[in-house]
Amino acid sequence: MDKEGKVVINREWCKGCGICVAFCPEEALILDPEEKAYWAHPEKCKRCGLCELRCPDIAIELVQK
């Protein structure tokens, strides 16, 4: 998978359920101190997009480039 693209998180919509963090195969996401999803480790991220698919809050988007 290419390393192009960014994981963009809509903090207004994120309810901090932690689903994206728990199921990220590369542990690239964390919950920040405000309990919002945060793309903490872009270097580990394979841009697989599973976080976007499984986000119940439609708060994560894998934006190409």
């Binding site: 207004e12 919509w13 309810k15 901090g16 698919l53 119940p56 809050d57 439609i58 988007e61």
Partner: peptide
């Protein structure tokens, strides 16, 4: 993008944190 199919003024939705229904809507 998925959010372009949503009526944005009603988001964030009413479903609880961790509820699965948003995943179904997105799918």
């Amino acid at each position: 993008p998925v959010k372009d199919y949503l009526r944005l003024r009603f988001l964030p939705h009413i479903w609880c944190p961790g509820c699965g229904h948003g995943i179904v809507m997105s799918g």
